[in-house]
Design a protein around this nucleic acid. Structure first.
Length: 945
RNA sequence: GCGCCUGUGGCGAAAUUGGUAUACGCGCCAGACUUAGGAUCUGGUGACGCAAGUCGUGCAGGUUCGAGUCCUGUCAGGCGCACCA
């Protein structure tokens, strides 16, 4: 029987669907295993061969675990909200929901082709109201929570209200936007509105006036991870800083837990390191500086407290409120001009220019250690959002301060013995402190750092600062709160309405608040977000329903929020929803959550390191705090599959002609490389006829050939339509079958590594599969498997394979497993092995990789049950034992000859046989034998002198 | 600038974790079967050398009986962060 993959695959696809073989339920009698691949955004272009790489890897592992007796949860869904569908809607008027639906159908079709064991009954879509109900719900819970720093967890806001009405802000140790001081009387005297405003300072989801990345090109704000080099990741539009009222999530409150959690999970070092950088913990001190001739004082943050004697100026961020307070009347005009200049520089200019700019405020601060008067400047190299927005500048030991001092001619005072600061600052944290204080100078209480190492000096200064009440030891994090509003249509609407300008949550029972219809997807003429176009977008507070805008009376009918949530909202807790996707009462029922707990294996791209993978950890920690999730870290083990790059082919046109010259001869001509469709190139040889038919302008192309062939050049590039290097899985499946595609994608190399898609090797995998198939059939095509006992060699081959594949499976080292399959099948073929005892386990081993052909063979072998429920075979070391072992004999590390020794020989016997060899005396001649090292089963090393 | 990762044939990559470097596949060469081959099968394929042999894992050192693997330095490529005080 020929291996007819098209027929086999179609039949089994049908049967799997009919018999719902991948549907799964919580089952206490079996251990659970949760395998998850990051769900895709269904783009209009469909899948290319790079997309399924991670899915195949995860699927193989899931199938293997199923054979090992685990109850496998492997769901799939769609991250359906996104910019492309909305952009398309703006251009064409086509509703994004329609485009998205269409794309999802196409994705589903392609995914089904490949034969994944997804439980599709659990599919979720982030744009489905039944799904985003729980996104909105989580947001509301964050609104109703604050973060307690003492117990390090989120608590209900009512507890905070109770504290405020009893004690005011006294003894309050909570995450907050700014430090407030209120007495209980003050709080209790406040109006409802004023109290709400105060609470905004503490809520985990809060409305904040913040500097945001405003992207005019996209008409929306962007998160930090959506901006690279001052332009938007999507579209490449310039991004500027703007102060806007936005919904924010107080993710910064979770900084330390997000950092600590990394030590408990099995992720790659590089991803963990990226997250650590992003969180950016730094330990330092806050020190208060008095302003000269004033009651004012301000606090700076430094990690180099030891350099306090080298401070020669202070710098404020332009956005800092201190600027206004500290600017003297004489400097007013100059400062105002500078602030104006800064405001009009975009983020891009600011980074590209790297010009040192700044202005003097006219004020002086007093160094608390020395009493020195220090000028206070304003410069945009100090960031408002980090620390306190003010720094003490130590030009001798900070390169940025150094550049500023040089530009504005400010003094530079070195503090490390023997350092040279004439050309550049000395930033290293090493050396011995001097000049602290300088000879002849005094300091507060005679405090000195001279003679200490930098490390000791930092510690000593911190201690002193705390003792004397000059400031406090402080840990700062770089991680900023996540901005959670987007001025877009195609996203989750906020379940929020506005009463006297204050936001209120719609009642939980009214969720989901469904996305309204609009007739235009663009911002309104008055610059409001697209939801401003909605005619029915007001909230009736008593009826608990959405009503026509015309009914807004600000008494019981109020306007609803016009922004929508960002992309990461819907993807932050989707893994929990998969556990219980149709539950209308809860995100996930507690007993179901208690069974599935967390994701055991999460597979996806590393590009989400500082986006989804951090938001999702934060979101889950919050859900954990409120008892909605039973595990603190959502993804126990993370595997980042590499990206599949494109492998482009080129033809070389001689300039100003329609003649193309083969790759090897192009040096002799003046040529222009042109991308050519990889589908008309085979093994880098161009199909010249297909090329002439490819495009009208090449119809009469001439060719300069080498060896009668046109050889194309190639390069590794991003896989993209414009480079004609997109490999479509549909084509490969049509030609080779899905099993071969799966096999080849895994054979390409380790899954964590990025590599170009090179179609040239796929024939090898196709050949392997056909050879494996042929083991089961005779020349007439009849099933040839017998019940005869296998020969020893065949047993050894299969047990070797079982061992290798079982071990590789845990490491997901599939490429080496496939190599082992190839060797084993080759051996069994040459042994003419037809024995069931060998060929049956082979089917089970193959089933995770090539499920279609495995199902077919398993059935042909007469099994009622599907191969997925067959137990994973165990190997028996007894079959792997060798009678004799070949050992290399080396003299001082140099291999000279080999000997064959009995497998169970003792070391003494091995030594004796090694020295008994006819060549031994030749190599020992004139030398002294020092010792003999017998490495088990491999090498005898005879050390001589 | 700081941090992380990777350097092995013509190519994708292996190497029992310190033990015969280059498994497996592609490509290439030779042969078989063929009217034919972008089919199938068999054998060969790191470099130099007629050979015995010598040299070979980016480069330079070191530890070791023995190093692709460990250590130090260095170069190259990739990724991340980047006025974060």
């Amino acid at each position: 029987m020929d291996y007819n993959f098209t027929e086999i695959e179609a039949r089994w696809r049908q049967r799997w669907a009919d018999e719902k073989v991948y549907e799964v339920k919580a089952d206490e009698s079996k251990p659970k295993y949760y395998v998850l691949s990051m769900f895709p955004y269904p783009s209009g272009a469909g899948l290319h061969v790079g997309h399924p790489l991670g899915y195949i890897a995860a699927d193989i592992y899931a199938r293997y675990k199923r054979n090992k007796g685990f109850n496998i949860l492997q769901p799939m869904g769609y991250d359906a909200y996104g910019l492309p569908a909305e952009q398309y809607a703006i251009q064409t008027g086509q509703h994004p929901a329609i485009t998205t639906d269409k794309n999802i159908s196409r994705y589903r079709e392609q995914l089904d082709q490949i034969g994944f064991s997804f439980d599709w009954s659990r599919e979720v879509r982030t744009c489905d109201p039944q799904y985003y109900k729980w996104t909105q719900w989580a947001f509301q819970r964050m609104f109703d929570s604050f973060y307690c720093l003492d117990c390090q967890k989120a608590l209900p806001i009512v507890q905070l209200v109770a504290h405020l009405s009893e004690k005011g802000t006294e003894g309050l140790h909570v995450a907050q936007s700014q430090e407030l001081e209120l007495t209980a009387q003050q709080w209790n005297a406040m109006t409802e509105r004023e109290q709400q405003e105060v609470l905004m300072n503490y809520r985990i989801a809060y409305l904040g006036e913040t500097m945001v990345n405003w992207c005019a090109g996209l008409g929306t704000v962007l998160a930090n991870d959506e901006v690279v080099d001052g332009v938007s990741v999507r579209g490449g539009f310039p991004v500027e800083q703007r102060k806007m009222k936005q919904w924010c999530l107080r993710i910064s409150a979770y900084s330390q837990r997000l950092l600590d959690g990394l030590d408990t999970i099995d992720w790659s070092d590089s991803i963990k390191e990226t997250q650590r950088n992003w969180i950016g913990r730094s330990e330092g001190a806050e020190v208060r500086f008095q302003v000269k001739d004033s009651d004012e004082s301000f606090v700076i943050f430094t990690t180099r407290a030891d350099t306090i004697f080298g401070v020669t100026f202070m710098v404020l961020a332009p956005e800092s409120e201190l600027v206004e307070q500290l600017t003297t009347p004489e400097q007013q005009a100059a400062v105002a001009a500078y602030l104006d200049e800064v405001k009009h520089r975009t983020e891009l200019d600011r980074m590209a220019g790297k010009k040192v700019t700044g202005v003097f405020t006219g004020s002086y601060a007093i160094n608390p250690f020395t009493g020195d008067e220090i000028p206070v400047w304003v410069s945009d190299y100090v960031l408002a959002g980090y620390g306190t927005g003010a720094i003490m500048a130590v030009p001798a030991h900070d390169s940025r301060d150094y550049a500023f001092a040089k530009t504005f001619n400010l003094p530079i005072v070195p503090l490390v013995e023997g350092c040279d600061v004439s050309q550049e600052s000395f930033d290293a944290k090493e050396g011995i402190v001097t000049n602290s204080p300088a000879a002849g100078k005094s300091s507060l209480d005679g405090f000195t750092l001279n003679g200490l190492s930098i490390k000791e000096a930092i510690a000593a200064t911190k201690r002193f600062v705390e003792e004397k009440g000059l400031g406090r030891v402080k840990v700062n994090y770089r991680l900023r709160d996540a901005i959670f509003s987007r001025q877009r249509y195609w996203g989750e609407p906020f379940p929020v309405y506005y009463k006297e300008g204050m936001p209120y949550m719609i009642s939980e029972e009214s969720l989901p608040l469904q996305l309204p219809e609009v007739d235009k997807f663009l911002p309104t003429e008055t610059g409001e977000p697209p939801l401003g176009n909605a005619k029915v977008w007001a909230w009736d507070e008593e009826a608990h329903e959405v009503v026509d805008n015309a009914r807004i009376d600000h008494k019981r009918v109020f306007p609803l929020e016009l922004s929508t949530m960002p992309g990461f909202a819907g993807s932050s807790a989707y893994y929990l929803r998969y556990m219980d996707p149709r539950n209308d009462e809860a995100l996930v029922a507690p007993d179901v959550d208690a069974y599935w707990k967390d994701v055991d294996l999460y597979v996806g791209g590393s590009e989400h390191a500082t986006g989804h993978l951090i938001y999702s950890r934060f979101w889950n920690k919050f859900l954990f705090d409120i008892g909605a999730s039973c595990v603190e870290e959502p993804f126990k083990k993370l595997v980042n599959q590499g990206m599949i790059q494109g492998r482009s082919n080129f033809v070389y046109r001689i300039k100003n002609t329609n003649t193309f010259v083969s790759h090897g001869l192009k040096a002799q001509y003046d040529v222009t490389p042109i991308h050519v469709d990889i589908n008309i190139v085979q093994n880098d040889i161009l199909d010249v006829e297909a090329f002439r038919n490819w495009r009208p302008e090449y119809a009469d192309a001439e060719f300069v050939l080498e060896d009668g062939k046109y050889v194309c050049g190639w390069a590794v590039e991003k896989m993209s339509k414009s480079m004609f290097n997109v490999a479509n899985p549909d084509h490969i499946i049509a030609r080779y079958g899905a099993d071969t595609l799966r096999l080849y994608e895994m054979f390409l190399g380790p899954i964590t590594q990025s590599k170009p898609w090179d179609q040239n090797g796929i024939d090898g995998c196709a050949r392997f599969l056909r050879r494996a198939w042929n083991l089961y059939f005779d020349k007439e095509g009849k099933l040839a498997v017998t019940d005869e006992a296998p020969i020893k060699e065949s047993l050894k081959s299969i047990h070797k394979l079982i061992k290798k594949v079982s071990q590789d499976m845990e490491e997901m080292s599939y490429n080496t497993s496939i190599a082992a399959f190839m060797i084993c099948v080759g051996e069994l073929a040459s042994q003419k092995c037809r024995s069931r005892a060998v060929l049956e386990p082979l089917v089970v081993l193959l089933s995770p990789f090539t499920p279609f052909v495995a199902c077919e063979l398993w059935q042909l072998l007469g099994h009622e049950e599907i191969v997925f429920d067959a137990p994973w075979p165990a190997w028996d070391e007894a079959y792997l034992k060798e009678d004799t072992v070949r050992m290399a004999v080396s003299f001082s590390g140099k291999t000279r000859y080999t000997i064959d020794v009995p497998a169970d020989a003792t070391n003494d016997e091995v030594e004796k046989q090694a020295l008994g060899h006819e060549l031994a005396s030749r190599y020992l001649e004139g030398k002294q034998l020092i010792k003999i090292i017998v490495v088990p089963k491999r090498i005898v090393n005879i050390v001589v002198k």
